[in-house]
């Protein structure tokens, strides 16, 4: 557990020491903020609903860019050998890197609370919905981080890891919008697999255990698979 925390701290330092982190955060805030505020005044509602509607797709591009290097770079550089010959398991390394990526993603999403503060000054904002939406965003980001880590464990090439993670994240983000193409018996199971469905439930302010189980299972399955791949790949 301690080892995972040390790895997490090291990875967070790596993120925040490099200017790339600030560029990624700035670009994300700029694009998501512009997309949100460009239509905000048309609706004449003090709500962040539109912002959170965009989040599953926008994070599907940004988070793979953050996670692509996590394991692929270690393995291509050879430092993976150094790391795994320290008294630490591959599982602890994966857990540490996952926590760091999730904290970084949370730091990227947190300025939305500043948007909420600005909107509350001009209208009557439902803060409970804002907080559940924010919590849902973190769960969604954690799931994408786990998927990104899984993609990064599959290859030593960061670009391949990025594309693979982006495709997987994008797929679960838009799955619910493609259900009308699917045969009727598949609609229900596939709608359960769609991240957007679960995220939008939480974003509405509904805390349902099914949605929490969904995100928890997604994180666990992706991290377990990444660990399994790392254990068997050497």
């Amino acid at each position: 557990m301690k080892a995972a925390l040390h790895i997490m701290v090291k990875e967070l330092e790596d993120y925040f020491v490099s200017p790339i982190a600030y560029i990624v955060i700035a670009v994300f805030l700029l694009v998501s903020g512009w997309l949100f505020f460009s239509t905000f005044f048309l609706f004449n509602q003090a709500s962040l609903r539109n912002y959170f509607d965009l989040l599953p797709v926008s994070l599907a591009f940004v988070i793979p860019a953050m996670t692509m290097r996590l394991l692929a770079e270690e393995r291509s550089r050879g430092s993976w050998e150094l790391l795994l010959t320290l008294p630490v398991t591959a599982r602890a390394v994966t857990a540490g890197k996952f926590l760091a990526a999730t904290f970084f993603a949370a730091a990227m999403i947190t300025p939305v609370l500043f948007y909420a503060l600005c909107i509350s000054l001009i209208g009557d904002l439902d803060w409970a919905v804002v907080f559940t939406s924010y919590a849902g965003s973190i769960l969604l980001a954690a799931s994408y981080c786990a998927i990104g880590l899984l993609a990064s464990s599959l290859t030593r090439n960061q670009i391949i890891a990025f594309i693979l993670a982006m495709v997987l994240c994008f797929l679960i983000a838009v799955l619910d919008k493609m259900l009308f193409f699917m045969p009727r018996p598949l609609v229900e199971p596939l709608s359960y697999l769609a991240a957007d469905t679960h995220f939008q439930n939480i974003a509405k302010g509904v805390i349902d255990s099914r949605d929490l189980v969904y995100f928890g299972s997604l994180v666990w399955a992706a991290l377990y698979a990444a660990d399994l791949i790392l254990e068997t790949s050497e």
């Binding site: 790596d14 550089r77 050879g78 430092s79 150094l82 010959t85 320290l86 008294p87 630490v88």
Partner: peptide
Amino acid sequence: LDVKRLMGYLPESAPLY
């Protein structure tokens, strides 16, 4: 893990950060 605690290892070409 116990065995790794007893050893210090320098891999070939010292892959560091």
